[in-house]
Design a protein around this nucleic acid. Sequence first.
DNA 1: GCTGTACTTGAGTGATTGTTCAATATAGAG
DNA 2: CTCTATATTGAACAATCACTCAAGTACAGC
Lengths: 204, 204
Amino acid sequence: MARATIHNRQDSLERALQLFWQKGFHATSLKDLEKALDMRPGSIYATFGSKDGLFQESMERYARLGLAEFERTLHAYPSPLAGLAAYLRGLGGLRDRELPSRACMLVKSLLELGEREQAAWRKAADLLAGMEERFIDRFDAAQQIGELDSRLDPVRLGRRLQAEVMGLRAFAQRDVDSATVHALAEDMALSLEALRKDGVTDKR
Amino acid sequence: MARATIHNRQDSLERALQLFWQKGFHATSLKDLEKALDMRPGSIYATFGSKDGLFQESMERYARLGLAEFERTLHAYPSPLAGLAAYLRGLGGLRDRELPSRACMLVKSLLELGEREQAAWRKAADLLAGMEERFIDRFDAAQQIGELDSRLDPVRLGRRLQAEVMGLRAFAQRDVDSATVHALAEDMALSLEALRKDGVTDKR
DNA sequence: GCTGTACTTGAGTGATTGTTCAATATAGAG
DNA sequence: CTCTATATTGAACAATCACTCAAGTACAGC
């Protein structure tokens, strides 16, 4: 009935994500995107509407994949606190993998964007709020199985953890050794594990 | 002997700093700067060389003023640990003051800039390294007066604190209540104070 | 009041920005 | 094959980008 598409949407989105994650919104030009996606402007606009739209879809993909990896880590540990600590230790390896950036793309966007890109800024803020909810949910679970002192506030702990992750990843964006990042992540993980109520057996 | 300058250099720099801190490097155009400094392009280039140069000088000013405020807080407390905790609590008020941004300008730059702005990126990284040194120095001092367990590593503690500050300020860039930021800063301050060796009297 | 010097101006530079759209190409249906 | 529907192209667009420089301006010293 019509001409078939030669570009896979998810594939194009992944390439755009890599570019945006590395260079940020403003420093990524449409020329860059044309090259990375191997598409001409018309095709890009027909598929994604605008640079801003493509950027927002990239952030959504980033958050979806990041959350999936987070959940995968959690599932490997029956204990919520142990899962969160393992997630932190995993971030210690940020300098070992080859990534577009060590920093979180959502945080980069939150700091880079302003009023002029309000919609994209909102999206970044909302996606981060979703991640915060997941953190809080895990502290809640830890409390329900008696792993965490009932006097502690899961909401505050969740926000604290998000701030720690933001800080760890921003710090890793500096030109520091992999060992330094590993040590920092380890210290954060230890602090988190110190929350474990005395007498609770580690069931890893 | 010649025509007098009508613009104060420090004053112009302060205005540029406010703009860059709020909007970031890429989103700040020369038009914006012309308006904020009330200077025409020729004057700006005669005085600061380039947009990149002006940006780097702005970062230097930012770091100098920020460090001065940090030292002022420290001087109000005879105990190093108490001083650092007070600094964290002060950051809890980020949402109360009217600032160009809640996030640290150096972190914003570290995350926004890339290879194309290598010199400015380096400057941001170096200035952050300088701040890290100050943190480490305070933990060192705490250790020397016996306020801090001698088995703890001041370098790791200093880096951890910098990551916490980065995280706190990035978190505060989200659309959260002032109370939420205060609570987060309080939790971080409490963790820091918990490092105080048992038996050491608080001399605040 | 004149002169020399340094500061300031602003129109203009070429390059690059995100975006549009008429033309073209290509697949499947008949 | 022809026809139709849709994917794709890429030249062209106006706007904006960082930046330059010749001309104009105003002050200090004489």
